[in-house]
Amino acid sequence: QADGEDGPDYSRKGADSCFACHDDQATLAVFRTPHAVPTDSRTPFGHDQLQCEACHGPGGEHAARVRRGQERPGVIAFGEGATGTVAEQNAYCIDCHASDTGLGWHGTAHDDDTITCAGCHTSHAASDPVLETSTQAEVCFDCHQQQRTQSLKPFAHVVDEGKMDCGSCHSVHDTTFDAMLVRQTLNQTCHECHAETRGPHLWEHAPVAEDCSTCHEPHGSNHPGMLTMRGPMLCQSCHSQAGHPSLAQDSDSLPSGIASQYLLGQNCMNCHGQVHGSNHPSGSKLMR
């Protein structure tokens, strides 16, 4: 056994000791990951690093002979079959990845007392599912089940097709922003892809400038445009104008009655198409 000075014992031959038993493909797949690049001195298999025991902890007792009937002492394990606490497991990851988790990790639902790094990351696979757009959402949905439900609603971002990932909007490690968004505010995040709504416009629509989620549910909705409520009622929640009465739209307004442009098609937006703002000098009513 190698001596850890004033500490637990490490194995005598490092990884060579481990692979005497652990030579299955799932274990060896670590050599197809960034953790096993010998020329990168920061990685577990870099020069003078602790190889398997960098993550799994000192394995001297684990690798030593045991008496018949004696249980073999364990090492730190991750994921299924893990025996250590969440904090104990994560301490090994954060020891190297401290700067990756500094801004947004501590004190959040993802922090070191709540879920393990291995709860999301698969460190022995050549391709970590949570880092791939096509598979990331399924990893997140393991815990964020309500968002899975919402993503299947009739109108949603194409997360369920694996063409967008949760990371398009959320950064789980490295932000101090609300909802772990990738940009400082919700609107700045939405403008990543929808910059045509950013303005500033000559005629602004007040809630648009302040908070996209006043009208939109970004995880999915029963209503077109991922709106939080069907129009025209959504608009009528805030608008009851003199000269443009807030008329009730009931079944009389359907094609079977007097088909109403206030209800059918795009309801209020049949005329007020510039709901995100207008840059036309005559556009104060968001029609130009």
Binding site: A2, D3, G14, A15, D16, F19, A36
Partner: peptide, 12 residues
């Protein structure tokens, strides 16, 4: 400090 002089990773 860990003595890794015999950690040759020959089977890696």
């Amino acid at each position: 400090d860990v003595d890794t002089s015999e950690w040759l990773c020959e089977s890696c």
